[in-house]
């Protein structure tokens, strides 16, 4: 395995660990509801307390997402979002912020069609730090994971309640940046994460890796986020933020909500 160089993700978690703080990871969909509004929201995330930005790139067939993220993707596509425009959004963001890590999250086909080598070069040049690609399990590492590590990007893997101890080493093997623990068996925006159930799972993963473990799926409120962040290295919130964008809330209102979530995480 080629070792990935230190990324903004690595530096951010090192800094947080030193300060004894938990990470708040926030997800928004690039281009939702349109390019300019999405960019305005993304630019506001660091000041609202977001430590790591997960930027979704839309796909017509998001098979692991619930209705909230599905609709966000449809809005973005309807507004003309493409993977190239998502990279452009990262470049625009980077012009004013060179510190906050950005992880692109989505499905493989748009990357495959863009061309893996070209995508990795363009993504790195734009200022992307890591990738989460839902439909690429370790069995398909040769597709994108290994080339991404070679290109200096983190490949952040999802571990799930169905990932048993026998399989966990394989899931962790080429993971870098952090591990994303999916708190429920289900799709985004469904179920409710319970800190009691999540705590032993995070401990199980941390026994096998030095990487930080962040927990996502089913976290909707500042209280949820605080409770989960207490038993992990960070908490991820997506659908709860995206549903406000979907409801037509102005960027400042969305960012106020994000700030309340960040405060919850940082209380932990």
């Amino acid at each position: 395995m080629q070792t990935v160089r230190e990324t903004r993700i690595d530096r951010t978690f090192a800094r947080l660990r030193e300060a004894g703080r938990k990470a708040f990871v926030a997800y928004v969909m690039a281009g939702d509801p349109d390019y300019d509004t999405a960019l305005e929201i993304v630019r506001g995330l660091p000041a609202a307390g977001v430590d790591v930005i997960e930027l979704g790139f839309p796909f017509t067939d998001p098979m692991a997402d619930g209705p909230t993220i599905q609709l966000a993707g449809q809005r973005a596509l309807a507004a003309g979002q493409t993977l190239a425009r998502t990279l452009e959004m990262v470049r625009d963001f980077r012009a004013g912020d060179d510190g906050t890590p950005i992880v692109l999250m989505g499905y493989y086909n748009p990357i495959y069609i863009y061309g893996v080598e070209r995508f990795l070069a363009d993504a790195r040049a734009a200022g992307v730090d890591g990738l989460i690609v839902v439909d690429l399990p370790p069995e398909e590492d040769a597709e994108l994971c290994l080339p991404a590590l070679g290109a200096g990007l983190n490949f952040i893997r999802l571990a799930t309640p169905t990932t048993d101890d026998a399989r966990l080493p394989r899931v962790l093997q080429n993971t870098s940046g952090f591990v994303y623990y999916v708190s429920i068996t289900g799709i985004t925006g469904a179920g409710a994460a319970s800190a009691d159930q999540v705590a032993p799972e995070v401990a199980r993963i941390k026994k096998r890796t030095e990487l930080p473990v962040c927990v996502g799926f089913g976290i909707r409120t500042a209280e949820d986020a605080e409770a989960i962040a207490r038993v992990a290295d960070g908490a991820v919130v997506g659908s709860a933020i995206v549903s406000r964008i979907g409801a037509g809330e102005r960027p400042e209102a969305v960012l106020d909500f994000v700030r309340s979530l960040a405060e919850g995480v940082h209380r932990a």
Binding site: D135, P137, E139, R157, L158, P161, T162, T163, R167, V182
Partner: peptide, 20 residues
């Protein structure tokens, strides 16, 4: 053994489904 016919096929699913 990887479920491929040439370059086609494979197992492009989320981790939750992979063990199953």
């Amino acid at each position: 053994e990887n479920g491929r016919f040439g370059i086609y096929g494979g197992r492009f699913v989320s981790e939750t489904l992979m063990p199953l």
